[in-house]
Write a protein that binds this DNA or RNA. Structure first.
Lengths: 133, 133
DNA sequence: CTATAGGGATAGGGTTTT
DNA sequence: TAAAACCCTATCCCTATA
């Protein structure tokens, strides 16, 4: 029960903030976190979030929209397989009634409108093998 | 993975590339990024990197050479010892010759004349209601 | 115009709390 | 256990300067 000495009381995202984030992504594109933050249209709502916060929140929202935890599953699957005994957890999805109260957090169209971010092409843009640990 | 806006997921530096960069610095000097890149001795390994990439990587390596293991140090210092020790080794796999490295990543002769990098990473972590200028 | 240095933003892995 | 919020930092981008 040792709470962190100070500093980070964990700020939960409000529906207004989530809506502003989504609107910002629609307007400026995913990845333009600082731009979204400086936009006076959203800065009033997101003024206590950082650009990294926006990025993190968007990732969480995207993970939920994209099937089911692709990242965690993949990493856990590649963990050391200690031939663990099974039969202890059976994830029955109960009570996952997603109720949209007022602001429908529609996690459907997380498509970003392809930013006009095109570099002058002076650098290599082709990755031969994109492999990371 | 996800649809990358530009097509540059991220190119992690391989040990071979790091070794080539260090050898290039030894041969041509730090700051001669373009020269290192054009050297046929290293261009075969660093052909996907730009001179700016070399500069950035060298900066990062220099920072690591100094005392900046904040993550490791801090975490290890505050590490709590669990009462139930976990199995770290898995003696199932046999004959797995674990080779850690082929070239000792010697971070010794990073001739950098005192680079006092102090990032003002202070973020406002105030409560919910903060006045905005 | 080209190259480097430096500041700053982003991406992704990791950690803590719920 | 998983999920949400947050942290850490390698990599990448932008701009000023020589």
């Amino acid at each position: 029960l040792s709470a962190t000495p100070d500093g980070a009381p964990k700020q939960k995202w409000t529906p207004e903030e989530e809506a502003a984030l989504k609107a910002g992504v629609v307007k400026h594109g995913a990845g333009k976190w600082r731009t979204i933050l400086k936009d006076p249209e959203f800065s009033g709502v997101l003024f206590l979030r950082s650009n990294v916060d926006l990025k993190d929140k968007w990732r969480n929202m995207s993970v939920m929209a994209n099937g089911w935890g692709s990242r965690e599953k993949a990493r856990l699957a590649l963990r050391k397989v200690p031939s663990a005994p099974k039969a202890e957890e059976n994830p029955l999805s109960l009570g996952t009634a997603v109720q949209s109260d007022d602001e429908t957090v529609d996690t459907k169209a997380l498509a970003l409108p392809s930013n006009p971010v095109q570099i002058t092409g002076s650098k290599r843009s082709f990755s031969r093998y994109t492999s990371y640990p």
